[in-house]
Write a protein that binds this DNA or RNA. Structure first.
Lengths: 213, 213
DNA sequence: TAGATTGTTAATCGATTAACAATC
DNA sequence: TAGATTGTTAATCGATTAACAATC
């Protein structure tokens, strides 16, 4: 399976992002080698799962020593496309949209916000860092001109599908949906739900069932 | 299995939040009955999965008609604890922390932000809506006084575990972690990762593999 | 009644874990 | 060498789907 990069299950991809975050930290601390057991302990997984996951990468560990941290980091960066830079547009200039447009972590990881849009005329023209909030009418052209691949949806649930359709028609390739609403899209477009509110509801459930015990 | 409320798998809980969002919309539109097939089609699932999931609720559908929308909504609200109000503290008064503290959707769903904290003395004292950014030193007492159950972590990755430990020591019951860092906590405390950056990395991977095909 | 839809059991599918030979 | 750790196969576990009797 070595290096067979496509068609990894979503569950594996999700963990690869965790391995990357961890290994970047370790490299920062000057750690040279890391074993599947250490990774597993740090992230609350089994070493079997870690080795199984890492076997999908185009990179091998070494018996008795583990994985070379720098090499593992590069292989994960490679697999996840974390070395690529992406053009991103944010739709919705409310608190959340503006915060995401300003979020330094995104830019540091290569997700460059190229525009922020809103349908509310009172918001259009406002500055958000280096950007200016623009009208939804400009969205399709802006997506094409900036070759934006990713759209972040920070609009009310009722507007989410319509905006998604507009983004998709303009050629966007992936959508990060922050609304607690399901969005349908053609297969060629990936939609990932950020699920912040849903996560709070999950917490709510977990706390209640923990108390019931 | 009817009404056996605890120990539902995480995957089921995740879908219950989607059912709730959908059914709330449907009720708003005046829809009275909904079938497992309709729910499945709306959310991209199979009707089997939907029926299996809903069978965990303390609520039954009716052959030939489906589920009464209002009753289903109430059962989901009940199961997820969406009828409860929660006290929440936000730690980290950067762009993201401030946006979350101001996010209307949270309050509307019963998650009441009771305080926002930061370690940066330049941020302390600033207004965020009706709140004032307070020093981390005030955090433990504020958690106790407001009986906060949930802490939202919007701090840099390097600070996340330390802040989580402080929240936990102060008696918090659940943590929503927005940093791309793993956090360890005792079993009695639930940690859910918001994974916004991780979701972008997943999108990045999905777009690249789609292009490779 | 006939038809449609639930609730549930059984079958399938996929993901995680255990085990161990290979190997450094 | 002896011991530790990988990579991978096989076993287990859990979640999804199919199927269908019960039922309205």
């Amino acid at each position: 399976m070595k290096g067979d990069s496509s068609h990894l299950p979503r569950s594996v991809i999700g963990r690869l992002t965790k391995y990357l975050a961890l290994v970047q930290d370790l490299c920062g601390e000057g750690v040279e080698w890391v074993s599947s057991h250490e990774i597993a302990d740090s992230l609350g997984l089994t070493s079997s799962t870690v080795r199984q996951d890492l076997s999908h990468l185009d990179f091998s560990g070494i018996s008795k020593r583990g994985y070379k941290a720098a090499g593992l980091r590069e292989a994960l960066v490679q697999e996840l496309g974390a070395d690529t830079t992406w053009s991103v547009v944010v739709v919705g200039a409310g608190n959340l949209g503006r915060a995401l447009a300003l979020h330094e972590e995104f830019a540091r990881r290569g997700f460059n916000i190229r525009g922020i849009f809103d349908s509310d005329s009172r918001k259009i023209g406002r500055r958000v860092g280096a950007l200016t909030v623009r009208s939804m009418r400009d969205l399709p052209n802006a997506v094409r001109r900036t070759k934006a691949e990713i759209g972040i949806l920070a609009v009310p649930p009722s507007a989410a599908q319509g905006v998604a359709d507009l983004l998709i028609a303009s050629g966007i390739k992936g959508v990060l949906n922050l609304a607690l609403t399901h969005i349908t899209a053609p297969k060629r477009v990936t939609v990932i739900d950020a699920r912040i509110v849903a996560s709070l509801l999950e917490l709510s459930h977990a706390i209640r069932t923990a108390q019931a015990e």
